[in-house]
């Protein structure tokens, strides 16, 4: 159903250089209507530059982009009225009050949302008269997301939105992002939090060294790049070498009574059938899949947590 819709965002071979430094090197992906699309990658991979090009904030040096059918380079003004943007590095004047900022930003759009609702949604009601400079980092971040929504945008770009939020506030934010989408908007989420990407995103592009290294749903990425499946169980039997000859199994590890069987594809079904055939019925037979985090580390090959 989704696949039949025309993409809201199309990027093809996007290139952006800063002097001799290549920040984005041939990035391509497309985002469908009402998708929550994640852009995941280590710091400095080119995520922010990519979304800033899409918002017409930076001139691309090559490639083709289309957002809501508009060219961000030439129709930037028209485009900005229809998108919402939460930037990674930006600020408001220290002395502006929360309500004044919302009032100002919602007045920029011909179809503003009632900003009182945004105060409510983002837990800013008590802070209505607080000055921007007096807000904590987390509250400033929430205000920025609220401002990104103030013009009733069709596409929302959220760049490191949950950075600086405490775990509870992050959960609330995830919930609200789901609601932004349910309200009909498309969300582009730049993040380096794996749990966030896995919980929220319909599809992801993983960017590393300025290129897209993989695109797909989180599940698909795990299946394709997770390095197979591990079936685990415990048993008192010690002679289990025969397991290596079961179809789809690649290796078997045995520690005490804990057994891990690595394999590809429907390895769980094969192992289960073989075990039953040998009269073994472990009560804790289970599958352990790679997490998105492992996929990410495998794909970006940087060996350290992003």
């Amino acid at each position: 159903m989704l696949l039949q819709m025309a993409p809201v965002i199309e990027v093809e071979g996007l290139v952006k250089r800063y002097g001799s430094l290549v920040a984005v090197d041939g990035v391509s992906f497309s985002v469908l209507p009402q998708e929550i699309f994640g852009i995941l990658g280590p710091n400095g991979a080119g995520k922010t530059t990519t979304v800033e090009c899409l918002q017409g904030l930076r001139r691309a040096d090559g490639g083709r982009m289309s957002v809501l059918g508009l060219d961000p380079q030439h129709d930037a003004r028209t485009l900005r009225a229809r998108i919402g943007s939460q930037l990674q590095e930006s600020a408001l004047p220290d002395r502006i009050k929360v309500w004044e900022a919302l009032d100002l930003f919602s007045s920029l759009s011909p179809h503003p949302l009632p900003w009182e609702q945004l105060l409510n949604d983002w837990g800013l009601v008590d802070k209505r008269n607080a000055k921007f400079g007096d807000l904590s980092g987390g509250l400033q971040q929430r205000l920025f997301v609220a401002l990104a929504l103030a013009n009733g945008p069709e596409v929302v770009f959220l760049d490191e939105m949950t950075t600086g939020l405490d775990p509870a506030a992050r959960r609330v934010a995830w919930d609200l992002i789901g609601r932004i989408r349910d309200g009909g908007a498309t969300v582009v989420l730049v993040t380096h939090f794996m749990d966030e990407a896995e919980a929220l995103c319909d599809r992801l592009a993983i960017i590393d060294h300025h290129k897209v290294v993989a695109t797909g749903t989180p599940q698909q990425l795990i299946v394709d790049h997770g390095g197979g499946v591990t079936v685990c169980f415990s048993t008192g039997h010690t002679d289990l070498q025969w397991l290596t000859s079961v179809p789809n199994v690649t290796s078997v590890e045995h520690h005490g009574d804990q057994v891990s069987v690595h394999g590809e594809g429907p390895v769980l079904a094969m192992v289960a059938a073989a075990l039953v055939e040998h009269g073994i019925a472990p009560p804790d037979l289970r599958v352990e899949r790679a997490t998105l985090e492992q996929v990410f580390l495998h794909l970006t090959d940087n060996g350290e947590a992003p």
Partner: peptide, 17 residues
Amino acid sequence: GDRERGVLKRFHASGVA
């Protein structure tokens, strides 16, 4: 100061002329 602190960038992204 507004440019240095990213206030102008914020305005720009929201379509302020």
